[in-house]
Amino acid sequence: MSEKTLEGSGKAFLVLLLPISFLIIFLVSTWKFLLALILLLIGFNVWQWHQWQQWCQQVNPIFHRLLQDTQGRVTPMDLAIKGNFSGTIAKRYLDTKASEFGASILNSEDGGPVYYFINATILGSILESSEPAKELPSQSVAQAAPILLAPTLAQPQPEETDAELLPPATHEEVKIPLEKQLVFGSLIQSELAKRLNVYSSTVYKRRNDPDFPEWSRSRDPDGIAWSFSRKSKEFFPLDEDKS
């Protein structure tokens, strides 16, 4: 039994030794070819990376102008149309920039990604739009009573997250007529946010949306639709006759 066991072990060793021997012979005879192939693949990847970096340098000015025009809110379609290239490349470029600058990526209503880039200029624009209104010689808007109007129960409300809704008021609010609020014929971002009973950041995110007038109408206590002017950075009522 002992001799048979040794014989079986020897055969098993030969079965393993033969493939290993063939592999060693193959590597010794073809190592130059394999090394050249590996170097070729590395060189190709380096060349592709270099080409991508050069292309990004050409697209950067377009991307920077688009950021200023859209106040940091960019979609792959916007960049693809502006730069005249495919949406897949535009998305890859935006993913690279989002990782580089720590941008926020949210999904729009149609399911597409929206990239939010915040720089010093855009942040300053947000802060300016949240400043109190200009003062009149006889009366300033800052001296007016608070304008925190809760939406009426009869109006249908769109679904909102808890982070977007303001907490319920702890004191009785004073309702001021719209014509007194519109001292300059318009409202700034913080004033409109109080009127719609949402946070100022919610108005900022939605103000460029196509459905912003209908959304603001659904939250306005008087059912008034509002539109945003990028030039003056103020909000104007579309249906003043309803006030």
Rank of each mutant, 00 (worst) to 15 (best):
M1K: 14
S9F: 07
G10N: 11
G10Y: 13
K11H: 13
L18F: 06
L18G: 00
I20Q: 14
I25M: 15
I25R: 14
I25Y: 14
S29Q: 13
T30I: 05
W31I: 12
K32H: 11
K32Y: 09
I38F: 14
L39F: 09
F44P: 01
N45R: 15
N45F: 11
V46M: 13
W47I: 10
H50W: 09
W52I: 13
Q53C: 07
C56L: 09
C56H: 12
Q57S: 05
Q58K: 11
V59G: 02
N60T: 15
F63L: 12
F63A: 02
Q68D: 09
D69L: 15
T70C: 14
Q71Y: 14
M77D: 13
I81S: 15
N84W: 05
F85S: 05
S86C: 05
S86L: 02
G87K: 12
K91R: 08
Y93G: 01
L94N: 00
L94E: 07
L94C: 00
D95W: 03
T96D: 08
F101I: 04
G102H: 05
N107Q: 06
S108I: 10
G112F: 07
V114M: 07
V114F: 01
N119M: 07
A120K: 15
T121V: 14
I122V: 11
I122G: 08
G124R: 09
S125D: 13
P132I: 03
E135S: 05
P137D: 06
S138K: 14
S140P: 02
S140C: 09
Q143E: 07
L148A: 11
L149N: 01
L149V: 06
P151M: 06
Q157W: 04
P158H: 07
P158V: 01
E160H: 15
E160Q: 15
T161Y: 08
T161W: 10
T161G: 14
D162M: 15
D162H: 13
D162T: 11
A163D: 14
L165S: 15
L166D: 04
P167K: 10
T170L: 13
E172Y: 06
E173S: 15
K180P: 00
L182C: 02
G185V: 02
G185F: 00
S186N: 10
L187Q: 01
L187D: 05
I188A: 11
Q189W: 00
Q189E: 15
S190L: 06
E191C: 07
L192K: 04
L196W: 06
N197C: 12
N197T: 08
V198M: 05
R206S: 04
N208S: 13
N208C: 15
P213V: 03
S218I: 00
S218Q: 12
R219Q: 08
P221V: 04
P221G: 00
S229A: 04
R230E: 14
K231A: 15
K231L: 10
S232V: 05
K233N: 07
F235Y: 14
F236T: 02
F236C: 04
P237N: 06
P237Q: 03
L238H: 03
D239A: 01
E240H: 09
E240S: 11
